[in-house]
């Protein structure tokens, strides 16, 4: 870990301005992913801006009937909020399927969205990784890729985005609110927040330099039955092989988002029209154009089968 200077920011705008002004600056909130990566010198900030004191840690109703979740709301508190449990069950379930009790107590809403991939080659600084070191190659392609992406991937990178929470937020059509260094705010639809790798896998989100997430808003509740099923090798405290989140309405319509298979939470709205026809039809649309490796092609079958089970559960 490289030496870094440290400051506590007072306001979101001041934090963003400081991040733009200071070379090598990074925000730190929960720290559960950033410090992990700093210890391995995968992240090497020269300056940390502690945003924990910004007070953006409330869950408040929006005028539109939804909820505005402060960026610093901890995963535990978000999952345990009775409004979330009652009206956005998918989000509670996704959060509770992730990490451990200790990590959820510390990890924040914004930080969870910004989690970096768990690709083992990204994590090993002796190996080539275009995400970690642009232009160095991708050692995961042709390597051990069982846990890696099957769709949305590129010749430069086959990493997955590991967040469970983001999968639920994608299905819920959340919006990411930010403040930029010049003090202006903007709202980024969750669908546009995570980027596909293409030739630039090191650019992972739509955030600009110094831009700070202040909140995530959820539209007003859509009702329906919410089910999140995370499939992993052990029963808890593991990243997904595949996770499937659905919201199914009484009329058979609904939404489907999938985790563990792509560089972003994966949702193909057009495929949702096939929900009445069943999992096979939806999966065909969701996974069209998939490029699995030998190690991870089982994920295609697993998505379809898990979706089938989840739909059966949602429909009682």
């Amino acid at each position: 870990m490289k030496a870094f200077s440290y400051e506590r920011a007072r306001t979101p705008a001041a934090a963003a301005a400081a991040a733009e002004r200071t070379p090598g600056a990074k925000f730190i909130a929960g720290g559960t992913n950033l410090l992990d990566l700093m210890k391995l010198q995968i992240e090497t900030p020269q300056h940390l801006i502690d945003v924990n004191g910004l007070g953006i840690d409330k869950i408040e109703p929006t005028p539109e009937g939804g909820l505005r979740i402060g960026a610093l709301v901890r995963n535990t508190d978000l999952a345990a909020d009775m409004r979330i449990r009652r009206d956005y069950g998918l989000l509670s379930r996704a959060l509770l399927a992730g990490a451990s009790g200790q990590l959820r107590n510390k990890a924040t809403t914004a930080g969870n969205l910004l989690q970096r991939t768990r690709c083992p080659y990204f994590y090993d600084t002796n190996q080539a990784c275009n995400k970690r070191k642009p232009g160095s190659g991708c050692a995961a392609i042709g390597g051990f890729s069982r846990s890696l992406g099957v769709i949305g991937v590129s010749d430069a990178c086959i990493a997955t985005q590991p967040s469970d929470m983001a999968v639920a937020m994608r299905a819920l059509d959340a919006t990411v609110e930010t403040v930029r260094p010049d003090g202006t705010a903007r709202a980024i639809p969750i669908a546009d927040f995570h980027r596909l790798p293409g030739a630039t896998p090191h650019i992972e989100t739509a955030l600009g330099k110094g831009e700070l997430i202040t909140a995530v808003t959820l539209p007003k509740p859509v009702g329906g039955t919410h089910v999140y099923h995370k499939v992993r090798d052990r029963a808890s405290y593991a990243f997904a092989l595949v996770s499937v989140g659905v919201i199914v309405q009484k009329d058979g319509s609904g939404r489907v988002a999938v985790g563990g298979i792509a560089p972003k939470p994966w949702r193909v709205e057009a495929s949702e029209a096939d929900l009445p026809r069943g999992a096979k039809a939806v999966a065909a649309g969701l996974l069209a154009g998939a490029k699995p490796t030998h190690d991870n092609q089982f994920k295609l079958t697993l998505v379809e089968r898990t979706l089938g089970a989840v739909l059966a559960e949602a429909r009682g």
């Binding site: 440290y6 730190i28 929960g30 720290g31 559960t32 410090l35 992990d36 940390l48 502690d50 924990n52 451990s100 009790g101 200790q102 990590l103 107590n105 510390k106």
Partner: peptide, 11 residues
């Protein structure tokens, strides 16, 4: 409860 390894003392 938290993991004390993933948090800085100065925080």
């Amino acid at each position: 409860r938290i993991n004390s390894c993933l948090t800085l003392a100065v925080m």
